[in-house]
Design a protein around this nucleic acid. Sequence first.
DNA 1: TTGTAGGCGTTATCAC
DNA 2: GTGATAACGCCTACAA
Lengths: 345, 345
Amino acid sequence: MKSTHKPTMKDLAREVGLSVSVVSRVLNGKAADYRISEQTQRLVREAATKHGFSVNQIARGLRLQKTKTIGLLIPDISNNFFSSIARTVENAARRRGYAIVLCDTEDDEQVEQEALSLLLDRSVDGLLVSPIGKASAHIQGACARNVPLVLVDRFFDDHDIPYVTTNNFQGAYDGTSHLINCGHRRIGFIQGLPDSKPNCERLRGYRQALRDHRIPVEDSWVQGARFEEADGYASAQRLLDSLAAPTALFASSSLGALGVMRACLERGLRIPDDVSLIGFDEYPYAPLLAPPLTTIAQPTREIAELASRMLIDWLETGEAPTDRVHVLDTELVLRNSVAQLTPPA
Amino acid sequence: MKSTHKPTMKDLAREVGLSVSVVSRVLNGKAADYRISEQTQRLVREAATKHGFSVNQIARGLRLQKTKTIGLLIPDISNNFFSSIARTVENAARRRGYAIVLCDTEDDEQVEQEALSLLLDRSVDGLLVSPIGKASAHIQGACARNVPLVLVDRFFDDHDIPYVTTNNFQGAYDGTSHLINCGHRRIGFIQGLPDSKPNCERLRGYRQALRDHRIPVEDSWVQGARFEEADGYASAQRLLDSLAAPTALFASSSLGALGVMRACLERGLRIPDDVSLIGFDEYPYAPLLAPPLTTIAQPTREIAELASRMLIDWLETGEAPTDRVHVLDTELVLRNSVAQLTPPA
DNA sequence: TTGTAGGCGTTATCAC
DNA sequence: GTGATAACGCCTACAA
């Protein structure tokens, strides 16, 4: 092996004694359109195989203004929910010839903005984004530049950006209702990032369930500020410290639930005997926790597949999706972290 | 706002009535080198800010043969270990101006090969890879093309590719020794992908620990073929079905341990009372499992930081790292999944 | 059926 | 101090 240099079409052209255009046409499957002779085709293809030629997507991207690349902008790839999303997205994208450029925003607006620039500078064809907070200028900027963008999980309802998300309201409503049906009246809500749509919707579902069952909603029952274990832990401590401590806790995220469990463990409080717990979001460890956790499962795979499909179809057809909004159903997974306080009716 | 079009240097040049060269030089911080007048500089910079100019990395990449992009090729991004690696890598890379192109190989050689081509076609400057199996032609191909490459977690010892990994041998040795010290003699080993280095090393550590304690090693005690929950589950079933069933199980991966727990749960076997368990790899849920799992923790963050640093330094200096091999220490995290069979000496 | 030339946006080189 | 030009590798309208 002599060369350490990736062969270009020019190299092939020189070798077979033809022009670069012919090589390009053959290798792009346009031989028929140009009625290129069988012999020439064979010649070109053989040379390509022999040298292991593959097209330079950078050059092609510059020429075509299409890079076959999608930017994926998410808050925390180490969170099981988002890493599952990422896996499905990457897979779906690769099957259609797209590469995924990953950026982790750490739920920080500043980082989100920088990361977005990083992606735009690389001329990604489209974006899949789970934004930090409310509609922000930089996200809209991307849209204004006509970069196709689909929101995942978190979305804006005061804009016309397409999105795929979970029915967070219904999920939280179902979970809270379950707690109420089990006899709980004092139910704490451990929230995540307050500005994020999923959190708002979950909170709304929680409140609505209380209201529908004629239970007054106390503001002090809602605690927390971030989708993090430590935040769930601190929030749980605060709630359990209160005079009329809740008999049940609804955690708006899987990490939040984890923090709650740690707090309970530390206080010697048993779940569900002393405190009941439901966590939003399902994950492989939930059934093996102490106790097995009752959760609200999201259709992670469907979300990711649908969002990728919407975006890629958009990229290939040039037309924004007609069904702009997709809200997928959750499922209440009953396990063993909720106590029955009063006998069922 | 009139234009939906990302401004180019040409646009700026036209606006300020100067040549593209000047614009390029100012915006690349080479004003001093070319003694460009203060006034011109200000003019250019103002125009740039006004139009929100940012450089087109595709064009620049073509010209410079550097894309400021790193390919990350890992077996399973939904696995907590790898998603933690990915997060740290992405972070470190972005701080130095690099974007990460993510590919998930699903522990499939075919996919790995395709994904690698995808990355190479996009002219990534370097690669961070956790390969499927033994040194394979396509990985070596990348090296032959002088694309800097650092292996993470999984590596080859019959090549001179730099790598960062865990001391898997020692970790497994420590874990197995702990089981032995607790009085266990019949210890099963639930392995992952047999060809992968981490798995080989862990198996070797397990065997060595047995040997050092004069416990004969039975081949039938080693079960499993993939780093997956279902595989751990099936392997555990097989081991627990055997006539002289093990009193303890060592799972070579976190997902394997999860499968073991499910198998035990299903059989009504209690951990640690009926079977003891240690799992390689630590994760946030381990302390809250039933029972809290004794694990071998890997320094995930350090691995990822070191590997990124090695690669990026290599890219920027043009010189391969002098310290080619890095093996970081594990830590045995004692919890509650191992029973003491005989009183300590 | 094949070739030529221009350009995608940038930067390095050389000229003025 | 500034500008023109060529080139990175590819694609395509136009020419032959």
